[in-house]
């Protein structure tokens, strides 16, 4: 039986449901299969490859994998990971997620961020590239921070960091990927919309960006930060993106067209 851990075409996993179809809670989406060869010896590499990762919305019962939510069955071959993609309003932190947090509390060594989940996340004021005890960012209550979840456990408060592995861009210059988002505007959207905004060259941001140049940061926790050269544009873009959550595609397209015509 291959080991299964949360947080590696599927190895050790046989899908009962076709990829991309909808599953309901309790529906079996696949079975774990034993990949140990007949002679019983498996190389460490094969063992590692046979690890099946279970993401959000998938639960295990014996050798069956069941969906725990209503959504689309997904699979990532690179990481041998399966999950069920659904839409909801509340965020549950997962490792490596990029989120936008709002500083709720300040302490001497760290801050508490609201990340739109049941619990808050802690961000150390030293978790910034190039930060030292004497030279670290001052984070006010209400500041917006774009950061990465570095510890996500259901039993403990999540931890976040603004250090990007492999990068040495100091927090000071404002060139680093993560850090405080100054100016601009932030809105709250559904998790599903946030995820779709992260798809490269996605229709929503491309349609808007074609007419108005702007910067944006999208947190998988349902927060979107927008900044453009004029406040008017920032405000209109905020409204347009928020509407994408409730309007059907055709209606949204028409709404944006009208809005853009009236703006510039």
């Amino acid at each position: 039986m291959p080991k299964v851990e949360n947080g590696a075409a599927p190895v050790g996993l046989q899908f009962g449901k076709e990829m991309g179809t909808l599953a309901l809670p309790g529906e079996e989406i696949g079975k774990l299969v034993d990949t140990t060869p007949p002679h019983g010896l498996q190389s460490p590499q094969d063992q590692k490859r046979a690890v099946v990762r279970l993401g959000s919305g998938v639960t295990q019962r014996g050798s069956s994998l069941l969906s725990s939510k209503a959504g689309k069955v997904c699979f990532d071959g690179r990481r041998n990971k399966t999950w069920v993609e659904n839409n909801q309003k509340r965020y549950v932190p997962a490792l490596e997620d990029m989120v936008i947090g709002v500083v709720e509390e300040r302490h001497s060594e760290d801050v508490r961020l609201d990340i739109n989940g049941t619990d808050t996340a802690t961000l150390s004021s030293l978790a910034f590239e190039g930060a030292t005890k004497k030279n670290r960012p001052h984070l006010d209550i209400g500041s917006l921070i774009y950061c990465r979840i570095t510890r996500a456990s259901k039993n403990m408060e999540a931890e976040a960091s603004c250090i990007e592995p492999g990068s040495n861009k100091s927090w000071v210059g404002g060139e680093a990927l993560y850090g405080e988002l100054k100016g601009g505007n932030v809105i709250q959207v559904s998790l599903g919309l946030a995820r779709s905004l992260l798809v490269p060259n996605g229709p929503v941001l491309t349609t808007l960006g074609a007419k108005i140049p702007f910067q944006s940061a999208v947190g998988v926790n349902g927060r979107v930060w927008i900044q453009s050269s004029s406040t008017e544009h920032t405000v209109l873009l905020s409204i347009a993106i928020a509407k994408a959550d409730t309007m059907p595609a055709d209606e949204w397209k028409a709404f944006v067209k009208k809005m853009l015509e009236q703006a510039t």
Binding site: K89, V102, D114, G142, L144, N185, Q188, T231, V235
Partner: peptide, 18 residues
Amino acid sequence: MDQEVFQKVHPREYLARF
């Protein structure tokens, strides 16, 4: 926690901007 936390922390500023 209510959704619009940013609004909660700087509610007047948020509305004024619009």
